[in-house]
Amino acid sequence: MKFIHAADIHLDTPFANIKNFSKQLQNNLRNSTYTAATKVFDTAIREHVDFVILAGDTYDNTEHSLTAQQFLNNQFTRLKENNIEVYLVYGNHDYYRNDFASIKFPENVHIFTNQVSTLEVESHDGLKVGITGFSYYQQHVNQDMVTEYPSRGKYDYQIGILHAGVGDNNYSPFTVNELLTKGYDYWALGHIHKREVLHENPFVVYPGDTQGRNQNETGTKGFYLVTVLSKITNIDFVPSSSYVWKKDAIAAEASDNLSEMIKKIDSKLDTDDFGLLTLDINNAQLLNEDLVKSIERGDLLHHFEDNISNTILYRVYLKFGNSQQLKQIDQRFWDDSVEKVFDLNSIKDLDKKLYNIDVLREHMDSPDFLKNIQELTKSTINKKFIGEEK
Rank of each mutant, 00 (worst) to 15 (best):
F3D: 10
F3V: 14
I4M: 09
A6R: 03
D8I: 07
I9G: 05
N20H: 14
F21P: 03
K23P: 01
Q24D: 15
L29P: 06
N31C: 02
T33D: 04
T35S: 13
T38P: 00
F41V: 12
D50R: 06
G56F: 04
Y59C: 06
A68K: 02
Q69Y: 07
Q69W: 06
F71M: 07
F76W: 08
F76S: 06
L79P: 11
N82D: 08
Y87E: 08
Y87D: 05
L88Y: 12
H93I: 04
Y95F: 15
R97N: 11
A101P: 00
I103H: 10
K104H: 09
K104A: 12
E107F: 08
T113H: 11
T113Y: 04
N114L: 00
V116L: 05
L119K: 15
E120Q: 15
K128R: 15
Y137E: 15
Y137F: 08
Q139G: 11
N142R: 14
D144F: 01
P150T: 11
P150W: 04
R152L: 08
Y157N: 07
G160Y: 03
L162E: 01
G167T: 01
N169R: 10
Y171S: 03
S172Y: 02
F174A: 01
V176S: 07
N177S: 13
E178D: 07
T181Y: 00
K182L: 13
K182W: 00
Y184N: 02
G190K: 06
K194W: 01
K194Y: 05
L198Q: 10
P207G: 09
T210Y: 07
N216K: 13
E217R: 08
G219Y: 06
K221A: 05
G222E: 14
T227R: 07
V228D: 08
V228T: 10
N234K: 14
P239D: 12
P239A: 15
S240F: 11
S240P: 12
V244L: 03
A249M: 10
I250M: 02
I250N: 02
S255F: 09
D256S: 05
S259F: 08
S259E: 15
K264N: 06
D266H: 13
K268N: 08
K268L: 13
D273W: 00
D273M: 03
L279E: 07
L279F: 08
D280N: 12
D280G: 00
I281G: 03
A284T: 09
Q285P: 00
L286G: 03
D290E: 15
D290S: 14
R297F: 04
G298K: 10
H303S: 01
N307W: 02
I308Q: 15
S309F: 11
N310C: 08
L313I: 05
Y317M: 07
L318F: 11
K319R: 14
K319Q: 13
G321E: 15
Q324E: 12
Q324C: 02
L326Y: 05
I329C: 07
D335Y: 01
S337L: 15
D343L: 07
K348Q: 14
D349W: 00
L350G: 01
D358I: 13
D358C: 00
D358G: 14
D368P: 00
N372V: 09
I373H: 03
I373Y: 02
Q374W: 04
E375Q: 15
K378R: 13
T380Y: 09
K383L: 11
